[in-house]
Design a protein around this nucleic acid. Structure first.
Lengths: 354, 354
DNA sequence: CTGAAAGCGCTTACAG
DNA sequence: CTGAAAGCGCTTACAG
C-alpha cells in the first residue's frame, strides 16, 4: 500500500532547482522579491515534480485561513441546497473551499461550530433560522464570540441573537404580500401551517400574515419544517372536530417544502387545488414552479443568499453588525384562486404572474 | 479588530496545568501513557481555558487526514444533494468533515481534485458520472493516482475509467425494468430524452431501455442533464417535423430532474399525463412522489450512496478496485398508464405501486 | 534579489 | 507514567 511519505515537499523542489526554500516559497506564492526569470524556472521545476502545496502547513506558518464552514439543517432540503450552491459557487471564485456541516438542534450547532473551529476555518456561515428566545442561542453566541476573538468571521442567515453580520430574508413583508394576495382573492378563512414556534423565521412570516389577514386567520398550528410537517398539518386541520365550522378556503404553509406536503396530502384526500382550497408557500425553491398546480409563493431570493453571506465575511468586521436585507417577490401561480363562492375577488395590484 | 493571536495553545494549557506539552497532548487525544487522574485534571484545565485543538497542526505533526472531499456537479441538483446528505450524515458519525466542491466539466474536476489535495483531505469522493470515453478521464485518473500514492483514498459513484473503488447504481437493470413496464402498458412508440451521450450513466440507462423496448424506441435525443434539458427535449420532440408520424405514447427522461422539465413542458402545452402521454424517470429523488401526476421512476437508492461510498474509503485499499452494487426498484406512480387505444395492457408482475 | 534561521501548534519516538 | 527534543511542511522577518 502506498505510504503517505511520497508527497513532494518544498525542500524537494528547492534541492532540484538548486535554490533555497525561501525562493521556492516566494516563487510559488507569487510573493515579490524573486527575479521573474528565476520564479518562472522554479515554478516549472515544481510543476514537473508534481508538487502540491500543503495548505495546512502554509496556514500554520502564514496564518491565512480561507475555508468557509457552512452549517445547515440538512443539505437534502432544497432550501439549504440552493443556499449552499450559491455560496460554493461564489466562494470558488475567491479560491475558497466550503466545509459543510449538518446540525438540526442547538446542541448540534454548538458542536459543529466547535469542530469548524478545530479545522481552523476562516469563517462560519450559519444558515439555519435563529431562535425567538435569546437564551436559546447563548451557548452558540459564546462559541462564535470566541471564534471571532481569534480572527474568525461569522455571518448568519436570518434573524438571530448572535451579534453577527446577517443576511436578512424579507420574511415579514413576504408574509404581508401573501396575506394581501389571499384577501384580494376573497379568502376570509385562512389556515396557517407553520414550522416550530421557536424559530424567528416562523415568527416573522406569521407576523406579516396575521397583520394583513387579521380575523381571516382561523387556524394556526406548528409542525416540523419539512414535507412531513405540511402533510401532518393538513391531516390535523381536516381531521379536527371543528373543521366544518372553520370553513377554511386557503392554506398557507410557512415554507415551500411544507407546502409540498400540503399539496400531497390534499391530493391524496381527493381535494382539488385551488378549486376546493388555495395553497401558498414561502421561498420559491426551484421545484415550486414544477408542482401541479404550480405553487404560489413569496420568493425570498434564496439563490442570492450565499453570495451575500460571502460578501459579508469578506469585509472587515465592523463594530456594529452589518445587515444585508433582501427583498421578496410575490409569485402568483396556479395554486391560489378565488375563494369558493366569492365573487368579490379583485386583481391584486402587487402580483406578478409567471 | 480581534487579532488571530488570541487562540489558546497546547503550551498555554501545559503551563497552566504545570505539566509538559507531551502530557497535555496525550491527555487530550486519549493516548495511553498518562495516569487517568492526571489526564482528567489536564482535560479540565484545557476546558476551562477554552482550548480548541488545531487540527491543521495536529495533522502536520501526526499525519492523520480525516476530511473527505466531495465533488458534485451542483449541490442544488436534488440528486447530488441527497447523495451529499447521506455522506455528511454518515461521515459525522466517524467525526469526519466533508468539503464540498462544484465541478461541471472535466477540467473543473481536475482542478478541484487538485485543490482538495492541497487541503490535504484524506479521501475524495467523485459523485459525477464517468465518461464513456476512457481518454476523457485520463487527466483526472493521473491526478487521483498521485493522490493515492500519497495515501489518499478515492471512491467514485458510477462507472468510471478511474481504477477506483466504486458505488455502482443499477442503471442498466433499472432501464430494463422501466422498458418492461412500458411494454406491459402497451406502449409501442417510446421517446427517450437523454442526458449527454458522453456519460456512462446515460449510456447504461439507454442500454437497458433499448434492450427491452427494441423497436418501440422511435426517438432518442440528448440534452443537458437538468430540468431545462427535459423541457428542451419535449420541445424538440413535439416541434419536430415528423412528430405526427412518430406517434409517441410515452416519454422516458433519463433522470427525474429531466422528467420534471418534461412534465412542465407538457403541461404548458396542454397535454395530459398519462392520458395523452406517459412519462417516467430515473433516480426517485424526493420530490418525484410529490409531482402531479406523481412520477413513475426507477429508484436507485441515492440516499444510500453516500454511506456506501464512506464504507469504501474507510476500508484499506485493495489491489483490485472494489465495487458496491446497489439494486433498484421500479416505482410505479400516476405518470404512466395504458397506451392510448391499447386494450392489451396487462399488469406488470414486477411493479410495486406506492 | 537571495538565503539561513526561527517559528507556526502539534505528535511521537526516545530517555528516564 | 512523565518529559525534553526533534520534526511535520511551510512562511517570513532579518541579513547580506
Amino acid at each position: 500500500m502506498a505510504e503517505r511519505g511520497g508527497a513532494v515537499r518544498l525542500v524537494d523542489v528547492a534541492e532540484r532547482a538548486g535554490v533555497s526554500l525561501a525562493t521556492v516559497s516566494r516563487s510559488l506564492t507569487g510573493a515579490s522579491g524573486v527575479s521573474p526569470g528565476l520564479a518562472e524556472r522554479v515554478r516549472g521545476v515544481a510543476e514537473s515534480m508534481g508538487y502540491v502545496a500543503n495548505l495546512q502547513a502554509r496556514s500554520l506558518a502564514g496564518g491565512t485561513e480561507s475555508s468557509i464552514g457552512l452549517i445547515v439543517t440538512d443539505i437534502a432540503d432544497p432550501y439549504f441546497a440552493e443556499i449552499a450552491s450559491g455560496l460554493i459557487a461564489s466562494a470558488a471564485g475567491q479560491q475558497r473551499m466550503v466545509q459543510l456541516s449538518h446540525a438540526a438542534t442547538r446542541e448540534a450547532v454548538l458542536a459543529q461550530v466547535r469542530v469548524l473551529r478545530e479545522y481552523r476555518v476562516g469563517a462560519i456561515v450559519l444558515a439555519g433560522s435563529g431562535y425567538v428566545d435569546p437564551a436559546a442561542e447563548a451557548a452558540v453566541a459564546a462559541e462564535l464570540d470566541a471564534f471571532r476573538q481569534t480572527g474568525g468571521r461569522v455571518a448568519v442567515i436570518g434573524r438571530h441573537h448572535l451579534d453577527a453580520d446577517a443576511v436578512l430574508p424579507d420574511n415579514v413583508e413576504a408574509g404581508r404580500s401573501l396575506g394581501r394576495h389571499l384577501l384580494s382573492l376573497g379568502h376570509g378563512r385562512v389556515a396557517l401551517l407553520a414550522g416550530p414556534a421557536s424559530l424567528n423565521t416562523v415568527a416573522d412570516r406569521l407576523l406579516g400574515l396575521t397583520e394583513t389577514l387579521g380575523d381571516a386567520v382561523v387556524h394556526v398550528s406548528h409542525h416540523s419544517f419539512e414535507r412531513a410537517g405540511g402533510a401532518a398539518g393538513v391531516a390535523a386541520l381536516l381531521d379536527g372536530t371543528d373543521t366544518m365550522r372553520l370553513g377554511v378556503t386557503a392554506i398557507v404553509a410557512l415554507s415551500d417544502v411544507m407546502a409540498i406536503g400540503v399539496l400531497g396530502e390534499l391530493r391524496s384526500r381527493g381535494l382539488r387545488v385551488p378549486h376546493d382550497l388555495s395553497v401558498a408557500g414561502f421561498d420559491d425553491i426551484a421545484v415550486a414552479a414544477d408542482l401541479s398546480p404550480a405553487l404560489t409563493t413569496a420568493r425570498l431570493s434564496i439563490g442570492r443568499i450565499g453570495a451575500e453571506a460571502l460578501a459579508l465575511i469578506e469585509r472587515e468586521p465592523a463594530d456594529v453588525p452589518r445587515q444585508t436585507r433582501l427583498g421578496h417577490d410575490l409569485v402568483v401561480r396556479a395554486s391560489t384562486g378565488a375563494a369558493p363562492g366569492d365573487d368579490t375577488a379583485r386583481p391584486d395590484p402587487e402580483e406578478a404572474t409567471e
